[in-house]
């Protein structure tokens, strides 16, 4: 962890960072368990190993900023402050879920938290983020739209179109590339002629930096600086966070394309492990603080599971609800 980043970190902030990372880690472990128990179905993409990215970046955002995420977005949703029970109920497909159970694991939405999904088309969220930022700029609202995506998105046309639009129109977007090295099972060097995603962004004249995505303090510092510049009217910013997922791409993935020793090596740099060790060494936190955070996370997750279990199923009669805005709402809106 770099010395520069440690200076401004208060105990309360350290507790918040570690508390959220632990919550996400334990939440995801519980999801894997519930998937085996067939409580959660469909695709399930776990964020384990990448927690520092969502947690560090989200600390730089304020409640009226917007967030656009990917299909691996449970961590982003929790770090953004969505109620864990609603996130869990969404995975169950229950009516009490963030999206009334309509979306599942890949489509968590929460308008109150300006959390715009949950997009399962790689690269599909980038133009949306550009548009949200365009709306803010046109309405002269000093807000930031933060867009998360993986390095796999850089091969999509929508990535390049979005970089161009954001830079051309100097829009207040923070692009956060979570580069975990693999687009599903295809390594970056096997899918990109230019393996620095930051380099792509720079070619559109977007300022950015490489970030150690396993170090929550570094991510937080980079995000604070980028968001500061965006709020200052300096246009879009780009972070390429080098990170790693400890679990396979999804629960269906037999993980045949990675070496066990590679995974083991990255685990030694795990964000929870690394930050906990550093916080204790520097006496910012104690072991009993960390134990307390673990207990709190366990309680929160128990409550979330209870909420999801107790939440009703949406009645079949409501299947066609919300395809279009109901006429009554429409008339009121006018």
């Amino acid at each position: 962890m770099s010395a520069d980043n440690q200076v401004s970190l208060s105990r309360a902030e350290a507790m918040a960072l570690l508390g959220q990372m632990i919550l996400i880690r334990r939440f995801e472990e519980k999801c894997a368990e519930l998937y085996s128990a067939q409580k959660i179905r469909g695709f399930l993409h776990l964020y384990i190993g990448e927690e520092a990215n969502a947690v560090g970046v989200m600390r730089a955002l304020s409640p009226d900023d917007a967030v656009v995420a990917t299909y691996r977005e449970h961590g982003h949703a929790l770090a953004r402050g969505l109620p864990p029970g609603e996130v869990m109920a969404e995975m169950y497909g229950k009516a009490g879920g963030s999206s009334r159970g309509r979306g599942g694991s890949m489509h968590i939405f929460d308008k109150k938290h300006r959390f715009y999904g949950g997009n399962a088309i790689v690269g599909g969220g980038l133009p949306l983020a550009v548009g949200l930022a365009l709306a803010d700029k046109m309405q002269k609202l000093n807000r930031v739209t933060c867009c998360f995506f993986g390095e796999g998105a850089a091969a999509e046309g929508e990535f390049h179109e979005s970089m161009n639009l954001a830079a051309l129109w100097q829009l207040p977007v923070l692009f956060v590339c979570e580069n975990n090295g693999y687009a599903m099972g295809t390594g970056l060097s096997r899918s990109e002629s230019e393996t620095s995603i930051l380099q792509h962004a720079k070619s559109y004249r977007i300022t950015g930096q490489d970030v150690d995505g396993m170090d929550v303090v570094a991510v937080r510092a980079a995000a604070l600086s980028a968001v500061g510049a965006i709020r200052n009217g300096e246009g879009p910013r780009f972070l390429e966070n080098k990170t790693y997922r400890f679990r396979p791409h999804s629960m269906f993935d037999p993980d045949l394309y990675r070496q066990k020793r590679e995974i083991a090596l990255w685990k030694t740099r795990g964000p929870v492990l690394q930050f906990s060790k550093w916080a204790i060494e520097t006496q910012l936190l104690s072991q009993s603080d960390i134990d307390g955070l673990e207990e709190e996370a366990a309680r929160t997750i128990d409550e979330a599971v209870r909420y999801a279990e107790e939440s009703p199923w949406e009645p079949e009669e409501d299947l066609e609800r919300d395809v279009y805005t109901p006429r009554k709402v429409e008339e009121t809106a006018r």
Binding site: Y116, P127, L128, L132, L134, A135, E158
Partner: peptide, 28 residues
């Protein structure tokens, strides 16, 4: 130029930006 916005040849990009702007309170 703000309200009559020439877009580059990037249909997916500017249609998606229209969707995002609509979510963000505009009427594109």
């Amino acid at each position: 130029e703000e309200r009559i916005r020439d877009a580059p040849l990037s249909e997916s990009g500017f249609v998606g930006a229209g969707i995002g702007a609509a979510l963000g309170g505009m009427r594109p």
